[in-house]
Design a binder for these strands. Structure first.
Length: 111
DNA sequence: AAGGTGACTCAGG
DNA sequence: GCCTGAGCCACCT
């Protein structure tokens, strides 16, 4: 099941989300799945999804592609902290209540 | 069945 | 702000 990838794909450009948030949104559909499973799914997905928009609770991208993710995020205009070493979750964090409504009501629909 | 691992999170020092 | 320890769930050997 690619629910995780599905949620990550709904993350708009210039924004970001945390593994915990994705885990919670996905967990709401699957009933289980911890933050680690989110990362596992992303790792398995390869590059089929904007994994760089997914960061940990510290607003920091995966240790394997920190520079890569930060470069992409900065290029997309994602609100990073003054240091540019991590994402400003306070501003970048996606409001899933709104996001779900948007993704469900227009554009990225499979139909 | 049991043990080890990992794109995580939270709490404490 | 950074490091350590414990908890967590799914997957692999």
């Amino acid at each position: 099941m690619e629910s995780v990838l599905d949620v990550v794909e709904t993350v708009p450009r210039g924004s970001a989300t945390t593994y915990g948030d994705v885990a919670e949104v996905v967990g709401r559909r699957l009933g289980r799945g911890g933050p680690r499973q989110v990362g596992a799914a992303l790792r398995d997905s390869g590059g089929a999804v904007p994994w760089w928009r997914v960061v940990n609770a510290q607003g920091r991208p995966p240790a394997h592609h920190v520079t890569r993710a930060l470069d992409l995020l900065r290029d997309e205009g994602c609100p990073l902290v003054p240091d540019g070493s991590r994402v400003d979750l306070r501003a970048a964090r996606v409001d899933w209540d709104e996001q779900m409504d948007l993704s469900a009501g227009s554009g990225s629909e499979s139909v």
